[in-house]
């Protein structure tokens, strides 16, 4: 589903920062990959490269067999197939919850209003906040907002979902409700790439855990092996600091 081949990404603001160095990764359909690592390790950059919010400098990124770094690729078409959930939700504050979810369906997928609305209501029910369809995002709690953001991404019927630290901006008591939605999604067989600090989630849901440091993938493995018996010293140090 996702193929990342020798990808490099360097930022020049304000100093030269090598965010990704020779990163390669494959994500199969239906797989849940959790990316962990210290801040500044390049895990968010990797995720953002996957739907071209950042442009990788070198290498190839293939989504469903299409190279998104090729200038001839219609990136809007790819993005519609790749759902993204942000740390800061990024709901549209001038639109109601329902409009947040229907807008892109109508504008990008060209669905009729009724079709988009029924789809949105079904998704809101799925994430457990169908009673808030007509309120504005700022009237919701953080956890509710993030669940709306997930529903908004799912409304496009994506083939892959990317989660960029979806629970990092939430109050502790709201993390659970968002993780529950993500777990349910994983169980349904959605292909997911999740950047998170929630080790419990990684252990329970991930098919594979990737540990990144200084722009490189340091260690990859199934969660059982990863958390109990890591091979690299850097991984051991990181885990000892957070667990």
């Amino acid at each position: 589903m996702i193929e990342v081949r020798n990808v490099y990404k360097t930022f020049y603001v304000p100093h030269r920062v090598e965010a990704l160095v020779d990163v390669s990764l494959d994500v199969a359909a239906g797989e849940v990959v959790v990316v962990i690592g210290p801040s500044g390790s390049g895990k968010s950059t990797l995720l953002r490269c996957l739907n071209h919010l950042e442009t990788a400098n070198k290498g190839h990124i293939l989504i469903d067999g299409i190279d998104i770094l090729d200038p001839k690729t219609n990136i809007n078409k790819i993005r519609a197939e790749v759902g993204m959930v942000f740390q800061s939700f990024n709901l549209f504050p001038h639109k109601t919850v329902l409009d947040n979810i229907t807008l892109a369906q109508m504008v990008v997928r060209k669905r009729k209003k009724e079709e988009a609305t029924s789809k949105a209501m079904a998704l809101l029910k799925k994430v457990g906040i169908d009673d808030k369809a007509n309120v504005f995002p700022d009237q919701l709690s953080g956890g509710q907002q993030q669940r709306v953001a997930i529903a908004r991404a799912l409304a496009m019927d994506p083939k892959v979902m990317l989660f960029d630290e979806p629970t990092s901006a939430l109050d502790p008591e709201m993390i659970g409700e968002v993780l529950d939605v993500m777990k349910a999604l994983a169980k349904e067989g959605m292909t997911m790439v999740v950047v998170t600090h929630e080790m419990g989630f990684a252990r329970e849901v991930a098919d594979r855990v990737i540990f990144m440091d200084a722009g490189r993938i340091v260690e990859v493995g199934p969660p059982e092996h990863f958390f109990t018996n890591p091979t690299h010293d850097r991984t051991k140090l990181f885990l000892s600091q957070i667990l």
Binding site: N76, M84, F86, N90, A104, R152, A153, M156
Partner: peptide
Amino acid sequence: GQIEAARSLGMT
């Protein structure tokens, strides 16, 4: 984040 959210949904 607003433009990123919009573009990530496939909007031009």
